[in-house]
């Protein structure tokens, strides 16, 4: 047909415009790639929470006989682990993959030659990271429900919370990954941001146990705000601090991260 070199008679209509929602076409691209690897991923998304629940909740929890704030240690730690899992997935998916799309596979450059805007490219990839964080969190919730570690049906509200948390950490990480010149900076982000945040933002022990001077740092992390909300939801108790305040704080991180990411993506893609 094509080899007919212009003598073809079949008529087709090829639309050449922008897709109705361009970011969805970008998301579809990332999902198509994910189809090839999801099996290995889904296994670890169930295995990892099982291991952490068994290890921390049951193993460490056996030594924390009085629990925390009158709550069994397993029940207390599960919402924290849920939020920190979402953060880990969100950061892992927005460091090397974003860096690679600029530096190695150059996928973003291919996308920017199509009728997409910088915001479409960013939103589509961010949507994929959100999808990854939400599926991992859902798997986590299912496993912990099987262990009977969710005390309240309000636990379903943790999903919108971790979604917002994911955007709050992924958007600035996108900006960071677009700004750095070498991937060794990405490892620094894990060492100096992700690991301290996971250890001290109220996941494993209450922030009140930290020395006074360190507490503000813990409260400044997006993770602590999500942990407090998730803990309130799974235990069915009011959060320590205002829920609206938590949500606004997370939304501010997401919004600021978005603005930065758009700016830094544009600096790389439109030159």
């Amino acid at each position: 047909m094509v080899d007919g070199g212009g003598t073809g008679v079949e008529v087709s209509v090829v639309q050449r415009s922008r897709p109705a929602v361009p970011a969805l076409a970008v998301l579809a691209h990332h999902l198509t790639g994910y189809r090839r690897t999801w099996r290995a991923g889904i296994f670890s998304s169930f295995l990892l929470p099982t291991l952490t629940v068994v290890g921390f909740g049951l193993g460490v929890g056996a030594y924390v006989e009085q629990g925390v704030d009158g709550v069994p240690y397993l029940d207390w730690i599960v919402p924290g682990l849920l939020a920190s899992t979402a953060v880990q997935v969100a950061i892992a998916e927005s460091t090397w993959p974003v860096f690679s799309n600029f530096q190695w596979t150059r996928t973003y450059f291919a996308q920017s030659s199509a009728p997409l805007r910088v915001g479409d490219i960013l939103a589509g990839h961010l949507g994929f990271v959100l999808f990854r964080a939400l599926t991992a969190s859902t798997a986590f919730l299912l496993v912990t429900a099987l262990f009977g570690a969710l005390a309240s049906p309000w636990a379903v509200l943790t999903l919108p919370v971790v979604a917002l948390l994911c955007l709050a950490v992924a958007a600035p990480t996108f900006a960071y990954a677009a700004a750095v010149s070498s991937d060794s900076w990405l490892a620094m982000l894990f060492r100096f941001a992700l690991i301290p945040m996971t250890l001290f933002a109220g996941v494993f022990f209450p922030v009140e146990s930290l020395p006074d001077g360190l507490r503000p740092l813990a409260y400044a992390t997006p993770l602590w705000h999500a942990v407090d909300l998730c803990r309130a939801a799974t235990l069915g108790v009011p959060p320590q601090s205002s829920a609206v305040g938590h949500l606004l704080y997370l939304a501010a991180w997401a919004a600021l991260g978005w603005v930065l990411a758009v700016r830094l993506f544009r600096r790389r893609l439109v030159v």
């Binding site: 087709s12 639309q15 897709p19 198509t32």
Partner: peptide, 15 residues
């Protein structure tokens, strides 16, 4: 996947 960036429907894109 690239065809979708131009709003080309899935079946047209495959063909």
């Amino acid at each position: 996947t690239y065809a979708r960036y131009f709003g080309v429907p899935r079946s047209t894109a495959r063909r």
